[in-house]
Design a protein around this nucleic acid. Structure first.
Lengths: 291, 291
DNA sequence: AACACCATTTTGTCTATAACAAAATAATGT
DNA sequence: ACATTATTTTGTTATAGACAAAATGGTGTT
C-alpha cells in the first residue's frame, strides 16, 4: 500500500535506516510491487510509529526493532507509568488535561488566561505550562491522543503564547537575544516559553522560529547585532551531526557571541564547543545576564 | 566545508538528486574529505539555492544545472521582471512592501488592521493580502529579501490572520470543512486565507495545519464528521507522487466526501481522481456550497 | 489556430551491498 | 567512584544501474 517515501514521511524514519533495519533485524520486511519496489502495510507503519515514539524517549533500536506489537506495547506502558510518577499532577493540571481530552478550546483559553493572571507569567510558564506540555506529550506517546489532537492543542498554546508575547512591552534597547531551532527541529513551544520569560525580564528578543538554516542564523546575528543565540532541541530531534553543526556555527560567528542550547534533545550531550553553553532547566535562563 | 546532509537541508535538494546531478550535469562537483565523503563549498550551496529558487518557479534542471552563476542571475532577473509586469502594484501595496523592507512590525499591523476595516474581510484577503504574499515571495525569489526576513513577515501575517479568525463568530452547526496540507508542504498562509473566507461565509472549519499525515487526515475526517477536505499546495511543493497520494486518499475516505485542491503547486496538474476537484482561484472557494 | 494523441527525452527515485565513522555500552584500570 | 579504553551498535554514505513518471516535441484532426 505504501512506498518507502511515504513510510519515511509518516514515521520520521529515513529510507536508508528502514532498509538497514530490514537487513539487520528482519523488520520491517515489506512486500514488493511489480517493479520490485518495497511496499509497506498500514500495520507495519503503525508499529514503526510506535518504535519511533520509544526511540524518541531514549530507547535503542537493538532492543526494540523486531519485537512483537504486544511486547512493544508493554515497554511503552512501563515507560509511560514511569514518566507519570515523576510528574506531580495537581488539580489544576487535571483541569487542563480534561480540556485536552474534550477538545474544548473555549474552556482551555479561559483556564490559560485565568491561571496566567493568578500565577503571574513566570510561575505560569515554569510551573503550569511546561508540565502541561510534558503531560500532553506523554499522553500522545502513550497513544491516548491522536497526532492531530496533539497538534491542535499545541497550536492553541502557541497562539496563546504569541498573543501573550505581543502584549509584553519592552523598553530596553540593548541588543536582542536571538531565538531559533536548527533545521530538522520543528517544535517551537520551547522557544516561545523562553521568549516569554526573557521579555518578562525586560530582555529584547528576536524569535527566528523553527528550522533556521545556519547561514540565515549567522546573517540575522549580524543584522540584529545580537550577542546571544538561544537554540532549543526537543527529544524528537535526532541528528548525529549535531556536534559538527554546533562546531560549524561556532566557527561562523564572532568569538564574543555566546550560544546557549537547551531542551531534552541535548540534555544527554557532553563536551560542547567553546562559546556553546548547555542550560539544563528553564529556570536557569532567568538567572542569565546578557548585558 | 559542508557534508551532503547539510547541503540537503540548506537547499531542499535531496541526496540522490545531488549525486545524480553531479553525474549528469557535472555540477555540483564536491571535493572529498579523507574518508571519501563529498564536501561542498559555501559557494556551491549558494548556487544550488539559486537553482532551487528557479526550479520552484517552474524552470527545469536541464536548462539550469551547470550554468555559471552570472547566467543563472540573468535568468533570475528576467523571470523577476516578467513576474512584476503581471502584478498591479498600487499605492497601498507599496506601503506594505515598505514595511517589509523596514522590518516595521508596528506599522505593518496598523496597515493590516486599517486595510481590513476599509475593505472588509473578503476584499482584504483577495485583493490585498494574496497579492502582498505573492509580492513578498517574488522579492525573496529575486534575492531582495533574506529568508529570515521573509519568515518574519510570513509569521506576522500568520499571527494577524489567526487573531482575525478567532474573532469571527460562527453560528452554523453544519459539519466542518477540514483544512490541511500534505507532508512536505509547510506553507500555511493559503490555508489561513481560505479558513478566513469560509468562516466569513458562516462555514464551520477545522484547520489541521501543515504536514498532516494521511492517516491523521482520515481519522480527523471521521472524528469531525466532515464532508469536505481542502488541501493547499504552494509552488515550492514538489512531490512526484502527488497523484498517487491523492489516489490513496480517495481510496481511504468514503465516496460522499469531496476533496478540493488548490494553490500554485497543483495548477499545472491535469486529470485528478474522482472526488478530487481543482479550484483555480481563491475566489472560487466562495462560490462553493458545502451544504 | 486550438486541441487531443503518441513518441521521445528528461528527471527523480529506488535498488543492492559494502564500508566505515560516530555514538553507546561494556570492560578495564586507577 | 571515576576516568580511560575496547567493543558493539547504529546511522549514513558510496557506487552504478534501472526504470517509472513527468515534461517536451511532433503529428494529425477538428
Amino acid at each position: 500500500m505504501f512506498l518507502i517515501t511515504s513510510v519515511e514521511r509518516d514515521t520520521g524514519i529515513g529510507r536508508d535506516r528502514l532498509r538497514v533495519w530490514e537487513r539487520r533485524y528482519g523488520f520491517p520486511i515489506p512486500v514488493r510491487n511489480k517493479h520490485g519496489k518495497r511496499v509497506y502495510s498500514e500495520q507495519q507503519i503503525r508499529t514503526l510509529q510506535l518504535i519511533k515514539r520509544l526511540l524518541d524517549q531514549g530507547m535503542h533500536p537493538g532492543k526494540l526493532v523486531g519485537l512483537s506489537d504486544s511486547q512493544l506495547n508493554t515497554i511503552s506502558q512501563d515507560l509511560s507509568t514511569k514518566n507519570q510518577l515523576k510528574l506531580i499532577i495537581n488539580d489544576r493540571m487535571n483541569e487542563f488535561i480534561d480540556c485536552v481530552y474534550c477538545n474544548d478550546t473555549q474552556k482551555l483559553w479561559g483556564l490559560l488566561e485565568q491561571t496566567l493572571i493568578q500565577q503571574g507569567l513566570k510561575t505560569f510558564i515554569i510551573e503550569s505550562l511546561a508540565p502541561l506540555i510534558t503531560t500532553v506529550g506523554d499522553q500522545w506517546a502513550a497513544g491516548h491522543l491522536n497526532i492531530f489532537e496533539e497538534h491542535f492543542i499545541t497550536h492553541q498554546i502557541t497562539l496563546f503564547l504569541d498573543s501573550t508575547i505581543s502584549k509584553i512591552p519592552v523598553i530596553s534597547n540593548t541588543s536582542p537575544v536571538l531565538l531559533a531551532t536548527f533545521p530538522g527541529e520543528n517544535h517551537n513551544l520551547g522557544l516561545l516559553m523562553i521568549e516569554c520569560l526573557l521579555k518578562d525580564k525586560g530582555q529584547l528578543t528576536v524569535n527566528l522560529g523553527i528550522e533556521v538554516p545556519m547561514d540565515q542564523l549567522v546573517m540575522a546575528c549580524q543584522r540584529y547585532k545580537s550577542k546571544v543565540i538561544l537554540l532549543s532541541f526537543s527529544s524528537a530531534y535526532s541528528n548525529s551531526g549535531l556536534r559538527t553543526e554546533l562546531n560549524d556555527l561556532a566557527q561562523q560567528i564572532p568569538d564574543h557571541i555566546s550560544v546557549y542550547v537547551g531542551g531534552s534533545g541535548v540534555k544527554k550531550m557532553r563536551k560542547f564547543p567553546k562559546q556553546v553553553i548547555l542550560t539544563h532547566r528553564l529556570q536557569n535562563i532567568l538567572d542569565l545576564d546578557f548585558s
